[in-house]
């Protein structure tokens, strides 16, 4: 399974829509102060779905 080296979240761009958090297949993300945040990087399988579906260019996944 692919892994992510880093997940970058730009809180200035994040509008807190929760799309990335709710659609992550492995529950690797969470909401913190109305913005997306990384909950558990080890869980991430680098499927890229959060990055593809974020409407606001606010989350980037860097594969290992």
């Amino acid at each position: 399974m692919a892994k992510a080296e880093k997940i970058e979240i730009y809180v200035n761009l994040c509008k807190g829509c929760e799309i990335c958090v709710e659609l992550c297949p492995v529950d690797a993300l969470e909401m913190k102060d109305f913005k997306a945040a990384v909950k558990d990087l080890d869980k991430c399988i680098a499927c890229m779905q959060c990055e593809l579906r974020c409407p606001d260019f606010a989350i980037e996944v860097y594969k290992q």
């Binding site: 509008k15 807190g16 829509c17 409407p55 606001d56």
Partner: peptide
């Protein structure tokens, strides 16, 4: 940031 609402599909 664009003007679309939080969660608007248009950004996708």
């Amino acid at each position: 940031p664009h003007i679309w609402c939080p969660g608007c599909g248009y950004g996708i």
